[in-house]
Write a protein that binds this DNA or RNA. Structure first.
Length: 471
RNA sequence: GGCGGCGUAGCCAAGUGGUUAAGGCGGAGGUCUGCAAAACCUCUACUCACCGGUUCGACUCCGGUCGCCGCCUCCA
């Protein structure tokens, strides 16, 4: 079995992912905070983790993935209060929208998607454990983690935390801490509404942000698990804090492997509401792009490199992906060609493309290189098809290879189900009639009319095909 | 200031201490076609920000310069 080699933030090296005997690969992804619709930057990260889990499966491994839904946080409480509602009602829509977007992008649904509010008990238990082991202190009823009690703190981010001095930063928590590096595990009941408070042995209040990931990951994956994923911005302090509270709570190694996905920029700028460049999935769909094109765009980049989203780039994706779709359709048609064994060069093309594809992904999820293998298959396949040496069996071999690759990219299969409208169908038929009469000027009029509606025609030996392009 | 990353053709983007520096988009020419589209063929970086160094040999390793970016504070 080919092993996946993945960069590990913890060691700073590329290391193999090896499942514990008989166990699935256990991965945790820091999921969305459901206070508004997730944007394409969020999905850049989640697309990378989707590619990770699909690659693991492609390489023959089982996967157990947990992705949390953060449904308690200051923004949520604030927004829900302002709307005179509560957490459950307020987060319902953003959560639904998130799941809808995941489906749109054909991301596999993680095996477990726990909500923070449903795991406050586990968080309290972990905090009690930390208290018992002497890693906490309490100020005005709020419980803090004492970083001084965890000497290896800072190992993930390689930050010299001693430089972070008390009072050296703006403390938005408005709670007093012994040391600025310390972080809150439990916030004492303040002026938040009753629906944002929970009872704990150490006082009524609400959990800090970091504790939920520790509690939920360990509940479903065990105290030590394989891969922990998230955006690069979470390395510090979130993941650093997770490690501290988890390892101090259990005395065991928390996550073996840390995968961090770099950010997405829009036209070379960071996304921000003031710039008006924060796009979400419905925004892109509204511009006429299809979900498979959006998926291809997000999946094509290397996860450890900043990805620059541009409208021009998305337009380039349209053409590149159309080439693959056209090839797929061509193979479907060729499979009905008379049988006989597949030619050697066809089998060879499929085999070597698949090998290159697998090797690329196994090498730290090198998506661009994997895509090169896909396009290589398309080129060679088209080439032999043009030479007429692809019979039904050969086409099936090529299509099987492409389908195999699509287990990871999930956007190579041409969109189906799209139909011509009545008007369009009438124009299409009229053109076919005109062509039969060899009245080509009439035929071209019909084609032009269809083109203006975004329908492009292709006359082939097996009939006339049509496809829709962005108007 | 500290830590880290990036700079490859018109655009996007891989890559390696040593044969012709992947692939896609775009462009040029050709084949095919009623015309197109699709596809195929040929061409499109004598060069990998710049300057030094190490080496038999560097785009790939080291040092420096310039430029861009991220983190050190909530953030995918």
């Amino acid at each position: 079995m080919t092993r996946l080699k993945l960069y590990n933030t913890l060691s700073g090296r590329i290391e193999e992912i090896v499942p514990s005997d008989g166990q699935p690969i256990k991965m945790y992804v820091c999921g969305p905070t459901v206070y508004s619709r997730a944007h394409i930057g969020n999905f850049r990260t989640f697309m990378a983790t989707d590619m990770l889990r699909r690659t693991l499966k492609f390489l023959g491994m089982e996967v157990l993935e947990v992705m949390n839904i953060t449904d308690v946080d200051d923004r949520i409480i604030q927004l829900a209060s302002a709307k005179d509602t509560n957490i459950e009602a307020f987060t319902e829509e953003p959560t639904r929208a998130y799941l809808e977007d995941l489906a749109t992008l054909r991301m596999e649904i993680p095996e477990v998607m726990p909500k923070a509010t449903e795991h406050v008990g586990e968080m309290i238990a972990l905090i009690e454990q930390l208290m018992a082991r002497g890693h906490t202190y309490t100020v005005d009823g709020s419980v803090y983690f004492r970083i001084a009690s965890f000497p290896s703190y800072g190992g993930l981010s390689r930050l010299d935390v001693s430089g972070i001095k008390t009072g050296a930063r703006v403390d938005t928590d408005k709670y007093e801490k012994e040391d600025a590096r310390d972080f809150v595990l439990w916030k004492l009941k303040g002026d938040e509404p009753p629906w944002a408070q929970w009872d704990a042995s150490f006082g009524r209040g609400r959990p800090g942000w970091h504790i939920e990931c520790s509690a939920m990951s360990m509940k479903y994956l065990g105290e030590t698990f394989d891969i922990h994923c998230g955006g690069v911005d979470l390395i510090f302090p979130h993941h650093e804090n997770e490690i501290a509270q988890s390892e101090c709570g259990t005395g065991k190694l928390f996550a073996k492997h840390w995968m961090h996905v770099d950010h997405l920029l829009v036209e070379n700028e960071t996304m921000s509401k003031s710039k008006g460049n924060v796009y979400n999935i419905p925004d892109l769909l509204a511009r006429g792009f299809r979900s498979d094109q959006i998926r291809y765009m997000l999946a094509q980049s290397h996860y450890r490199k900043a990805f620059n989203f541009t409208w021009d780039g998305l337009a380039q994706v349209e053409t590149a992906l159309a080439r693959i779709h056209t090839f797929w359709n061509r193979l479907l048609e060729e499979t009905s060609t008379p049988a006989g064994p597949a030619h050697d060069d066809v089998v060879q093309a499929a085999t070597s493309a698949l090998a290159a594809f697998e090797a690329a992904l196994a090498n730290d999820l090198n998506a661009p290189e994997a895509l090169a293998a896909v396009h290589g298959l398309v080129s060679e396949g088209n080439s032999v098809a043009d030479r007429g040496t692809v019979n039904g069996a050969g086409a099936r071999v090529l299509l099987d290879a492409l389908k195999k690759m699509d287990q990871v990219f999930a956007c190579f299969e041409p969109p189906t189900g799209d139909l011509l409208s009545g008007d369009e169908q009438a124009l299409f038929d009229a053109r076919q009639d005109a062509r039969k009469r060899r009245d080509f000027s009439a035929a071209d009029v019909a084609r032009k009319a269809l083109q203006e509606r975004g329908v492009i025609l292709e006359d082939t030996a097996k009939g006339t095909r049509w496809k829709r392009v962005r108007a």
